[in-house]
């Protein structure tokens, strides 16, 4: 093997830059957590709209879900970061700029809220009416029924699907480097510009993402499954 090839395959350079790369990974995690919180809360809100008694609410909920579920995350990211501030700026007659981190959280959160909304809706509609009747008969308010009876069952039901969504979402956090959020991919690109050694650095990034996502999702699945199974007959 030639020295040049050996050198280009040497992954140790990845380790040399571990501090800055780890910082990048922290940004991935922060974007993920922020977007997950937004996706879950907006998703639940949209789901409750979609099953509302009043048809205007149902219409708004359906439009919301369809728009965000069918928008590519890359386009949403660019749109939220560059177009949305312009529109807001025109509306309030002032120059507006979004912090890249905030744009990333909003864009990914909105896209994935469309998916979570469908999960929540299907889960809520799968709860037998008798479960809710029992809550009402014992004097529970609708809010209490939602939080104590409906959602705990919905969470268990949608957990496998939600886990897949979270994995996709974590992968999607890598595109935020496009609007200059200093995540792992962004920092890797910066190092490559200095070192001119894309092979070990991109490969190292790929291995890091793979290992992290694989370990986390396997771990969560393992620990959640027995808890989830208890309620199934």
């Amino acid at each position: 093997m030639s020295d040049a090839l050996k050198q280009s395959l040497d992954l140790s350079i990845f380790w040399e830059y571990r501090a800055i790369l780890l910082q990048g990974l922290v940004f991935n995690a922060l974007v993920f957590l922020g977007a997950a919180a937004l996706a879950l809360s907006a998703g639940l809100g949209a789901a409750l709209m979609r099953i509302n008694r009043f048809w205007p609410a149902r219409l708004v909920g359906t439009l919301y879900v369809e728009i965000f579920r069918n928008a590519p995350d890359y386009i949403m990211l660019v749109w939220v970061h560059f177009v949305l501030p312009l529109l807001i700026g025109i509306a309030i007659r002032r120059r507006v700029e979004f912090d890249p981190f905030a744009s990333a959280v909003i864009a990914l959160g909105l896209v994935y809220s469309g998916y979570f909304a469908e999960g929540f809706r299907a889960g809520i509609q799968a709860i037998p009416q008798g479960n809710l009747d029992a809550g009402r008969a014992f004097g529970m308010s609708e809010r209490l029924i939602l939080w104590r009876i409906t959602l705990p069952q919905v969470v268990r039901r949608m957990l496998p699907e939600a886990l897949n969504l979270f994995v996709s979402m974590f992968k999607a956090t890598t595109i935020v480097s496009l609007i200059a959020v200093p995540d792992l991919m962004y920092n890797v690109s910066m190092v490559i510009q200095q070192e001119m050694r894309p092979l070990p650095l991109y490969t190292g990034a790929a291995i890091t993402y793979f290992a992290l996502i694989f370990l986390l999702s396997t771990g969560v699945r393992y620990f959640s499954e027995s808890w989830r199974r208890k309620i199934m007959a």
Binding site: P128, N131, D133, A137, Q153, K230
Partner: peptide
């Protein structure tokens, strides 16, 4: 109230 289908909360 006691229901025909029990309606216990499964979780």
């Amino acid at each position: 109230v006691v229901f025909q289908q029990f309606n216990l909360w499964p979780h």
